[in-house]
Design a protein around this nucleic acid. Sequence first.
DNA 1: GTCTTAATGCAATAATATTGCATTATTGCC
DNA 2: GGCAATAATGCAATATTATTGCATTAAGAC
Lengths: 141, 141
Amino acid sequence: MSGVEDSLRILRSKGYRVTQPRKLVLKVLERAEGPVSPYDIQKILQQEGERLNHVTIYRILDLFCLLNLAHKVLLCGGFVKCALGKREGCHRFMVCRQCGALREFADKALCEEESAIARDFGFVAEHHFSEFFGLCSNCNS
Amino acid sequence: MSGVEDSLRILRSKGYRVTQPRKLVLKVLERAEGPVSPYDIQKILQQEGERLNHVTIYRILDLFCLLNLAHKVLLCGGFVKCALGKREGCHRFMVCRQCGALREFADKALCEEESAIARDFGFVAEHHFSEFFGLCSNCNS
DNA sequence: GTCTTAATGCAATAATATTGCATTATTGCC
DNA sequence: GGCAATAATGCAATATTATTGCATTAAGAC
C-alpha cells in the first residue's frame, strides 16, 4: 500500500491539484524516520538536487494537516506523515533532560486508554502525542 | 508552601545567585495559569512596569530547567513552572484541529501507568506531557 | 564599604515563520 | 495536443523567535 498514492488520490478527490512540490513533500514525509521540520524537508530535497521554497513547504504542510494527511508533532516543531488507512496515529518519546537522548516508543494499551479518555470528553482523538521528560538509564545511574 | 521561596532556596544552595530578574521570572511562572513563552513572560512583566531583556529570560529559563525548577512544555514552545515538592508534573492537552480549541485536563491513572512504562525502559520520568489531537465535541457533531 | 565575579543588558546575527503579489504550471475543455 | 482559467508556487519583504560575544552591573563574601 503506497501512502503517497493514497494521499494524492485524496488531494484530487477534494479538488486540490497534484503538483510536483506536493509530491516531493509527500515522498520526504513517507521516507522520514521521524518528525521533520519544514526546513528539514527543504534540506533533504536539496541533497537530492530538488529546490523548493520554504514558503511553499509551509503551505503544503498546512494543507496536509487540514486534510489529515500529515499532522504536527510539537516536539521540535516537526511534522510527521500519517499512515493512510490508520486514522489514529501515536507518537511517544522519552527525552532525557541531561544528555538530550530522544527515544521513540509505542504502547498499544496506553493508546486505547487515551482514546477512551478522550471519548469521555466528547473528543475524537485522531493522534496521540506524548513525551516523557526525565533521566535516561545512563544518566540516572 | 511558597514555591517561589523554595526555588530561591534551591538556587542559593547550588551556588547560584538570587537576583531580581530570577525572582521576577519565578513570580510570573508561579502565577501563570498555563505554559508561558519567554516573550509572554517579558510582556507580562512589562505590563507591571518591569523591564527584562529577552536574552536574560532565555538564560534564566534554561537554568531553571537545568535545576528542574521549571520545565519546557513543547506545546507552543512555552515553559511551565514545576510545583516544588511534587517532582512529577503532568500536562495534558486536547487540541482541536478544526477550531484550535485547547483544553488542559488531568488523569491520575494515566500518569501512574506512564511512569510504570518509563520505568520498564530504565527511564525516570519527571514530567509527562501529552496531547490528543483531533476534533472537539463542537466540531465532530 | 570594597572586591570578585556571576549575571545581566545590549547589539548583532541567526533561525524560523508569515504576507502580498507577480509568475508558473495544473487541470478541464476543445 | 493546444488553450484558457485559476490554483499553486516563488520571490521579496517583514515579523517573530532564538543565540552569541562582550561590556556593564549588581549579588555575595569579607
